[in-house]
């Protein structure tokens, strides 16, 4: 089992925690990596997004995530967990750039799961409350018509489960851990 750090990274490059755990003889695979792409937390009117803004807000997290996944598989990891905000699923007023990156990463997870299932690698996403990632979720607009069902949303236990051997039959999924806001 590998350590998985708490929280959702929003600064710096793509966050990765965990490592390939080599068990027994050479070539044996195992272990988990949790990838936390850096999504742009700043609200921007769509017309104000420059090419440089978009490069940083879309291309950088996508390319970083692709490369982090590639490194994980090359290292023999068999559990990959990617953390995204639900903003990609709901869309976001003044957060189109963040939503596009988040949803692209979330669906990349599905593609990776489809290709790497035969290698024994599972790839899943944990979708968290936008408030954990973006600066102004109220500006982004309501995620759902109803309020959240719970007043708490700590994704760590779900991340731990998906990073564990116990989740071996789960792949390509998005588990939303936002207290029952997005349904």
């Amino acid at each position: 089992m590998v350590g998985v750090s708490g929280g959702v990274g929003v600064s710096g490059g793509v966050g990765e925690s965990g490592a390939a755990a080599v068990r027994g003889g050479a070539g044996e695979r195992g272990g988990a990596v949790v990838i936390r792409p850096r999504f742009d937390p700043v609200a921007r009117g769509f017309d104000e997004i420059s090419d440089d803004d978009f490069q940083a807000a879309f291309e950088a997290p996508l390319q970083d995530t692709i490369q982090a996944m590639q490194r994980a598989v090359a290292a023999g990891v068999t559990r990959i967990v990617v953390v995204v905000p639900t903003t990609g699923m709901s869309g976001g007023d003044h957060y189109a750039h963040t939503a596009m990156a988040a949803e692209a990463v979330r669906v990349l997870v599905k593609s990776a799961a489809r290709q790497w299932g035969a290698l024994g690698v599972t790839v899943n996403a944990v979708a968290v409350d936008p408030a954990m990632v973006i600066d102004d979720p109220t500006l982004a607009g309501p995620v759902s018509l109803a309020p959240a069902a719970l007043d708490r949303a700590d994704p760590q236990a779900v991340i731990d489960f998906l990073a564990s051997e116990a989740s071996g039959d789960v792949t390509g999924q998005t588990i939303v851990v936002d207290g029952g806001l997005w349904m």
């Binding site: 869309g91 692209a104 982004a140």
Partner: peptide, 13 residues
């Protein structure tokens, strides 16, 4: 997928 998220976002905006 990014295009779908853009449509949802701009629908709001």
């Amino acid at each position: 997928a990014a295009q779908r998220a853009l449509a949802k976002s701009l629908a709001r905006e």
